[in-house]
């Protein structure tokens, strides 16, 4: 593998977004790019990430390879890169190590690091194609604020999407709270718009602890999309220029 990324900051943000959810995971490298799928220890949340091969220049791969990485170790090495550095990932066919090269834009500094890889026997889940009943896109900073605010009052949040809007509500020992968003279109700054596409009303309850965790991906994209259907896991997606980070969260069941 040899994959060169114009901005090391992209990988730094991706790893920052997922390192508190999963510790060890495989980076699966194939023709479509570098992908990752991993569940948290409780098997309640799943992260699915893709950095498309088009996002690298060049992207060269002789045969598919799984890079078993400890994300804490990778974070330590990525801290040694500036966000604007050019990052090159290199690995042999049956690699024991992953090589990371950081070059500054002026081309007068080259840093070379290697991290040890590990064999990870990772469970892969098949995620069915789903036509969601509701898709809500909103500023990622707003979603983060709602999750943090409501998490002060409660462990869980009810998300209800209807024609009127989307309502996040919670109740706990000290009281209760809710935030309702209505659809609006910001012509000058589309990334600040809230869009609600609905085929039928949805009401689901989720653990806020995980949602707060997902919001660490807010640095990746100014927009987040929540996709919901009754009785299926929530999809929280942060799209990047050439790739995505998606989180799935199992709903709470029964009252």
């Amino acid at each position: 593998l040899e994959a060169r990324l114009e901005q090391a900051g992209v990988l730094k943000k991706v790893v920052d977004a997922i390192k508190d959810l999963v510790q060890d995971c495989n980076f699966d490298c194939n023709d479509s790019g570098i992908a990752l799928q991993a569940m948290d220890n409780s098997h309640v949340a799943l992260v699915s990430m893709l950095l498309k091969s088009e996002g690298f220049s060049p992207y060269r791969l002789d045969r598919n390879v799984a890079l078993g990485v400890n994300l804490t170790s990778l974070t330590k090495v990525l801290r040694c890169a500036q966000n604007e550095d050019i990052l090159t990932l290199k690995a042999e066919d049956a690699p024991d190590t992953l090589s990371l090269v950081f070059e500054n834009a002026e081309n007068d500094r080259i840093s070379e690091y290697e991290i040890k890889l590990m064999d990870i026997d990772q469970e892969h889940l098949g995620i069915p194609e789903t036509e969601y009943a509701a898709a809500i896109s909103m500023p990622s900073a707003e979603f983060q604020r709602i999750c943090r605010d409501l998490n002060q009052l409660s462990e869980s949040v009810a998300i209800e999407a209807s024609k009127e809007g989307v309502k996040f509500s919670c109740s706990g020992d000290i009281g209760s709270g809710s935030v309702t968003l209505r659809q609006h279109n910001n012509v000058d700054r589309p990334e600040l718009s809230t869009k609600i596409e609905l085929t039928e009303p949805v009401a689901l309850t989720f653990s806020l602890k995980y949602l707060v965790n997902f919001c660490k991906a807010s640095a990746l994209s100014s927009v987040v999309t929540l996709s919901l259907s009754n009785e299926v896991p929530l999809l929280v997606e942060y799209a990047m220029g050439s790739g995505f980070v998606r989180f799935y969260l199992a709903p709470k069941i029964g009252e």
Binding site: H43, V44, G126, Y248, A250, K252, I253, E255
Partner: peptide
């Protein structure tokens, strides 16, 4: 209070 089910309830193993 509601129970937290795991993702295995929804997603099959590949």
């Amino acid at each position: 209070p509601a129970d937290q089910g795991s993702l295995h309830r929804y997603f099959g193993q590949r």
